[in-house]
Design a protein around this nucleic acid. Structure first.
Lengths: 208, 208
DNA sequence: AGAAAAAGAGAACAAAAAGAAAACAATTGA
DNA sequence: TCAATTGTTTTCTTTTTGTTCTCTTTTTCT
């Protein structure tokens, strides 16, 4: 999974900022007009990238006339003062771009700390035995260190970000999944960069 | 029940916004004129979808001169400061109404519905295999009915409230834990009162 | 400058949704 | 009673929409 390109971010920002102006989830054609584009196919690629990144979700109500966009990113359109930045999805992704303030999610105090925090959506089942499921949101305290046993967001060799248990040993860093079918990953310390520590978790059971 | 299509939503929005301009509930033909449509049959399908979705109701005054539309029902449920009431813990407890010490918890929109919701804290491991752990908070939509397979707050014989999978059969209600070491509970329907349905979940990893 | 990546245009396709038109049945009102 | 109106159903055509291609243009990076 790649990091968003500039254009993809532009399009997402447009969706976030103009969400209110859509009476109903916009179709690709409608979005083309809004964005001044002439081709659905081009926009389609960008939208798929956003869906893949977990920033946007397809409109699953109808079968065909509608892989459309819902509100960007399970948004709470909260002000940045109160909400936490929702950055995107994490699985085998790319470094987290803390700069692009994307959407904001209104997180209860009990799920965050007094340090800077952000929200990610979990992709995959690597932490399923820890009760962290595909599609859950996690609240991450931004930190570049952690204690053994904590669940961390780790960036591996500058390219892949993942959510795992941390186990640091001399000259070795283990990233342990909580899934009996998956193997632990072993790296040298310089290969792994800690980007944050899990402090909260959320799940929605709604079926839209 | 299906999600509305774009056109259905448009038509609903028109009815909601122009309700005042109808001296009496409009007929399909009248609505066709307003909406610039040429066929009753086409509009009929949309209206039926809205009725099916509960957004509109047929006019039952006269028998024939009108399956017409009334104003859509409005739901308004403001809770203090937009937070959800935090009711207390649930395990083998008391009826939820008995707990009066109400605090309010700030819950992200993605974890609640547009119906009345409240928050409980989970005690025990009866739902551990569903990724719901001891100490988690759950967001419950207040409802007295549920579908099979949903996770519900059920009050047993007026005294014990518990969080379980619901399985309703003829003359029998099963409450299934998500824990391989625990047995299912079987009751007669009149013994079980559904108090709500799980729609969201939260966990804190903070160590105080 | 040149290669690679990203963005865009445009066409084509299948399926879904929307619409038109006609016919029918039930009710109302004169 | 008769004519008009209204809801209802059915059949058909048109439009919309997501999706997938190929090709060209623009941007980015070395």
């Amino acid at each position: 999974m790649n990091v968003l390109t500039r254009r993809q971010r532009e399009i997402f920002n447009y969706l976030r900022d103009n969400n209110d102006s859509f009476t109903c989830p916009p179709s690709l054609d409608e979005l083309c007009v809004r964005l001044g584009m002439a081709s659905r196919g081009s926009l389609y690629k960008h939208i798929m990238a956003l869906i893949n990144a977990g920033l946007v979700e397809p409109f699953t109500g109808n079968k065909k006339a509608g892989v459309r966009l819902t509100a960007p990113a399970q948004q709470d359109n909260e002000s940045p003062e109160q909400g936490l930045p929702f950055i995107g999805a994490i699985a085998a992704g790319k470094p987290i771009e803390a700069l692009s303030n994307i959407a904001y999610m209104n997180v209860p105090d009990a799920l965050k700390t007094d340090k800077p925090c952000y929200v990610l959506q979990v992709k995959g089942d690597s932490m399923i035995d820890a009760g962290i499921f595909d599609g859950d949101w996690v609240v991450i305290e931004q930190r570049d260190y952690a204690k053994n046993g904590e669940i961390v967001v780790a960036l591996i060799e500058g390219s892949d970000a993942t959510l795992k248990y941390l186990e640091q040993r001399v000259g070795q860093v283990l990233l342990l999944p909580a899934n009996t079918t998956m193997a632990a990953l072993s790296y040298r310390p310089e290969q792994v960069e800690i980007q944050g520590v899990l402090v909260g978790q959320m799940r929605s059971y709604r079926t839209h």
